[in-house]
Amino acid sequence: MTFKKFIKTVTFIEILKGMALTLSRFFSRSVTIQYPDERRPIAPGFRGQHALAKHPQTGEAKCVGCGLCATICPSQCIHVFREKGKVSRYEIEVLRCIYCGFCVEACPYGAVVLTENYEYSDYSKENLYMTKEKLLSNWDKYMPGNKGEEYFKRFWRPMSGDFETPSQQPMFRGKRS
């Protein structure tokens, strides 16, 4: 053991350094978010609970019932029932959904979206079984105004732009080190 090391050992220097750090953190701001009172901002395009998009003019569901979403869904949790000329039931088992967002990508008609709602816990299974009505009302609740349009523009992928070079692409503009 060298002398330096001995001094380091008996003075507990590394522990004191650690303690200085914890003490400085003691006086720094905490990062806790008091959840039900405060909420962290949700990034746009968050993959939360579903909504069925409404036709901008008629206000009816855009869904035509092609069933592609039900086909692509890896957890097979979408059920589409049709009846003469209309979609009679469109149901999503929220408890089975893994929020992969494939249904949105598969739908050629832009009829289903994922909203920012992540607070849908409930005591009964029925309430977590999303029917067409609930999904449509989700649209009004979470995609008001032209938020829905924005959503489709940015998160309904792919678009032709993804296969070519768009003019305005995010690039690093800072200083290079």
Binding site: T22, R25, F26, F27, S28, S30, V31, Q34
Partner: peptide
């Protein structure tokens, strides 16, 4: 509280 604040948390609130 003490440990909470040292760990950039709040502790019981």
């Amino acid at each position: 509280k003490v440990i909470g604040h040292m760990q950039v948390r709040l502790g019981p609130m």
